[in-house]
Amino acid sequence: MMRHPFVLFALGTFAVFLLLHLAGGRQYVGVLSGTVVGGAGGAGLGLLYALAWFGAVLAAPVLLLAGLLDGALARASRARP
């Protein structure tokens, strides 16, 4: 199991997105176009969902690859005599 901080942060970001998706945040993303459904709570949930989506789609894969590559390089450098 990789415990690199980048890997853990990427998995945490994706977990937050998954929780917001399961909570129904997708239906409130209309706040980005100016259509607020559900009042202030819906607007907040929609904004959080959009930020989590960007994090899961843009940041998490980069962090995951960086953490895995760093871990593999560290493991390879320890294996060298």
Rank of each mutant, 00 (worst) to 15 (best):
M2A: 13
V57R: 05
V7Q: 01
G30M: 03
G25A: 08
F6D: 15
L8Y: 00
T13K: 06
A23F: 06
A79T: 06
G39C: 06
L18G: 00
L69F: 10
F14R: 11
G34I: 03
S33C: 00
T13V: 14
L65S: 10
V31D: 04
L65Y: 12
L64Y: 04
G38V: 07
A76H: 12
G39R: 04
M1V: 10
A23P: 02
A74Q: 14
Y49R: 08
L65M: 14
L68T: 11
L22E: 06
G25I: 03
G34K: 02
V62E: 02
V16G: 00
A74P: 04
V16A: 12
T13C: 14
G34S: 06
S77V: 10
A56H: 09
F9V: 12
L63Q: 03
G34Q: 04
P61T: 13
H4W: 09
G71L: 09
V7R: 03
Y28R: 03
A10M: 05
L47R: 13
L65A: 15
A76Q: 13
G67S: 10
S77Y: 06
A10N: 03
A59N: 10
L69G: 08
W53R: 13
Y28I: 00
V7Y: 04
V62R: 11
L20A: 08
L68D: 00
V7P: 01
G30V: 00
A79K: 14
R26N: 04
R75I: 07
A59F: 13
L32H: 01
F6N: 14
L51P: 00
V7N: 06
A56R: 07
L73Y: 12
T13N: 14
L73P: 01
V37F: 05
V36W: 05
F14T: 10
L47E: 07
A79D: 13
G41H: 07
